[in-house]
Design a protein around this nucleic acid. Structure first.
Lengths: 127, 127
DNA sequence: GCTTGACCTGGAGTGCGCTCCAGATTGCAG
DNA sequence: CTGCAATCTGGAGCGCACTCCAGGTCAAGC
């Protein structure tokens, strides 16, 4: 949906673009993770490109395991304006480190799984 | 607790060794993820080194995101004996690939987070 | 002998993150 | 106009993986 030079997305389109379900989009708005989304005269949601962009970041934070409470904190900071830039950077940096640790852990545990697989292969071969 | 040449662990010790809580150990036994754990005359659990070893694998599968239903399948196969070796290998290999994909996704999403951090840094610098 | 603390059981409760539902509009294709 | 798909709201329900609780048993140190 294009109005003037601005593009809007229906709930279905926003869902499609972001990978969140429509129900999840509504849920995110309800809990204040999303700012109140713009409505048409009839009361239907109209997601702006900015909304979709922000949802992209949420997608990425979500996929890397950030709990919703912390995403909400981030959303709140983002709404407050420029004076929260430092805090947002700190939050993302902390998260970046958590991702490092996740990858580390996964790698280490994957080694164990692989060790087990090797062990089973030998056991199967020696049978 | 050492009896003959065999070492046993109390629930608290098993919890300590495996990183699962005592409640979780009981829960795992209840849902059949753990075989019935040996008991003392008075009915208290006595974890064998094998039990602790098996819990180590569960720990590792859990930490890499395997759902409990699938761990149960694995536990079932392990109880059945050698003729299930192939199936266990297949299960672990499938999981190994899922771990690969997890690491991939995390890495990619981490790049986005870092991009955002860089963006914020510039914005903060330009202020 | 008595207290203390670890343990037992069955079952209820919790937290998270959605997901689904009923009942009521609204927008658009034919 | 009609019908159907998409959307709306508030609220209930769900699946997962624990976690906690009440009420009871048992072992060991003082």
């Amino acid at each position: 949906m294009i109005i003037g030079s601005v593009t809007f997305y229906s709930p279905a389109q926003a869902a499609e673009k972001t990978g969140f379900s429509i129900d999840t989009l509504r849920y995110y708005e309800r809990i204040g993770l999303l700012d109140r989304i713009d409505r048409t005269a009839a009361g239907r949601r109209r997601f702006s490109s900015d909304d979709v962009g922000f949802l992209g970041i949420l997608r990425c934070l979500r996929d890397t395991g950030m709990p919703i409470a912390e995403m909400r904190r981030y959303a709140e900071l983002a709404r407050c304006g420029d004076e929260t830039l430092g805090e947002r950077i700190a939050l993302l940096e902390a998260h970046d480190e958590r991702i490092d640790r996740q990858i580390e852990t996964l790698g280490a545990q994957q080694e164990h799984v692989r060790g087990k697989i090797r062990y089973y292969r030998e056991a199967a071969g020696a049978e």
